[in-house]
Amino acid sequence: MKIKAAVCRAPNTQLDIETLDLEEPRDTEILVRVVATGICHTDIVVRDGLLPTPQPVVLGHEGAGVVEKIGKAVSKVAVGDHVVMTFNSCGHCPSCLEQASSYCYEFFPRNFFATRADGSSALSRNGEPVHGNFFGQSSFASHALCHERNIVKVSQEVPLELLGPLACGVQTGAGAVINALKVTAGKSFAVFGTGSVGLSAIMAARVVGATTIVAVDVNPDRLDFARTIGATHVINSRDGGASEQLVELTGGGLHYALDTTGLAPVIREAALSLAPRGTCGVLGASPPGSEIVLDEVHFMSGGRRLVGIVEGESNPDVFIPKLVELYRQGRFPFDKMVKFYAFDDINEAIHDSEIGKTIKPILRIG
């Protein structure tokens, strides 16, 4: 079939809206008519060639849509279901078998190589292959092929066009708090970086009952926004001394800290903010080979912990519907950080995200 897609053909260039050919779904594949898709920082990093995803490629990995066709081996969803497409996984490695698919042994090839497992692509233009299957979907398109491993059925009582970001950015931040760090009522929590991931973490900390919720950033507008969704305190780290302020604020240090920036000096600051036995989660992506330097005596003597987190350690089939229900109840207002754009305005949406004008852009496609 003919589809409309945004194609990345070279690093650091704008995406081109093109008409592509999409193959019929194979026995294990699912054809989704994309209604809307979020734009994530990872899409921008890959566009700029900072990760080894081949080009030309159709990116997009926060897709929401309606199932139009299923392969004969598919039983998880049916035609007409409302779905969100999330990260892909193999389903048979030790992590997947233990319901920890975000740590799939094949996570990188299944999500970043932009081919099927056999190396093929379902996308082409006039016979020229175009890489697809990015995060098992390539949802910067009117239609996408995905898999049972990365499709989640969602309620039809909630606007479908809003739900795409739950697939990655929102799931990552909220899941880091609820699933990975397991923040509980009465505890203190700070997030370093208030993009969509960090702000999702703040909303989740409020859901679980943390009583001290601190947003740390250099953008005063983002800090003001953080207060409206659950932050009890804010710190502008441009003024320096964030760790000292946090230790003073909490009377000895944080129970939990979360870094969303991937910057080594910020991670060090987050670790220095911890109380004895405190835990710092790290989920911001850095270039391969990046190193983190900690104060070893401070880290060891207080029994402090540093933990890496991918996709919020979520089981998407369970966690995404949970977030939808929290939103429906008015307890997780992630819609407040969303701005919608027309599909043809994808490059404007990406630019607005890069300069911080928009927290979470969503492209209306369908």
Rank of each mutant, 00 (worst) to 15 (best):
L246P: 08
H298L: 14
D118I: 07
A185P: 00
T260Y: 03
N236R: 09
K339E: 15
G195Y: 01
H351V: 00
T212F: 01
I44N: 09
E244S: 14
A204F: 07
N88T: 05
E325M: 03
G289R: 07
D295W: 10
N12V: 04
S124M: 07
V177L: 02
V7P: 01
R222S: 11
E313T: 06
L306W: 12
P316K: 04
S142Y: 01
G186F: 08
S196Q: 11
G63Y: 07
R116G: 08
F107T: 10
L263F: 13
G308T: 11
G303C: 10
G175H: 05
T194M: 08
A78H: 13
N126T: 03
K187D: 12
R47L: 11
A180M: 08
L258W: 05
T194P: 07
F134R: 00
V338W: 03
R227C: 10
R9H: 13
V297L: 13
H143E: 12
F112P: 05
F108C: 09
R305Q: 15
P25Y: 07
L162K: 13
G63R: 03
V318M: 00
I39T: 07
V152L: 04
G175N: 03
V266P: 10
E62V: 06
F134N: 01
C168K: 03
E24R: 14
G252N: 13
L51N: 04
F192Q: 03
S142N: 01
P25Q: 06
K69H: 10
D317S: 05
V66S: 10
A210Y: 03
P276L: 02
V310I: 15
P52R: 07
E296I: 02
E68G: 08
A144N: 03
M203P: 10
S121H: 09
D48N: 15
V57Q: 05
P129G: 03
D344E: 15
T228L: 09
T261A: 01
V207Q: 04
E68P: 05
I30E: 05
V324M: 02
A190Y: 12
A114D: 05
F107I: 15
A275G: 05
L294E: 10
G193P: 13
S95A: 15
L166M: 04
P316I: 00
P276C: 01
A201H: 02
R238C: 03
E296L: 11
S124R: 14
A100P: 02
D217V: 11
A275E: 15
H298A: 13
G230M: 09
A144Q: 02
A144Y: 04
T232N: 12
L283G: 02
G173V: 07
F113Y: 14
V307Q: 15
R125K: 15
V67P: 14
T42V: 03
F299C: 06
A349W: 04
Y341P: 10
K4A: 08
S95T: 06
K360S: 06
E24S: 13
K69C: 04
H233P: 09
G65N: 06
S138I: 01
V318T: 12
G193F: 05
M1I: 07
G132N: 06
H82W: 14
G253N: 14
R116V: 00
P276W: 03
I350H: 03
C93A: 02
V318H: 00
V83I: 14
I17K: 06
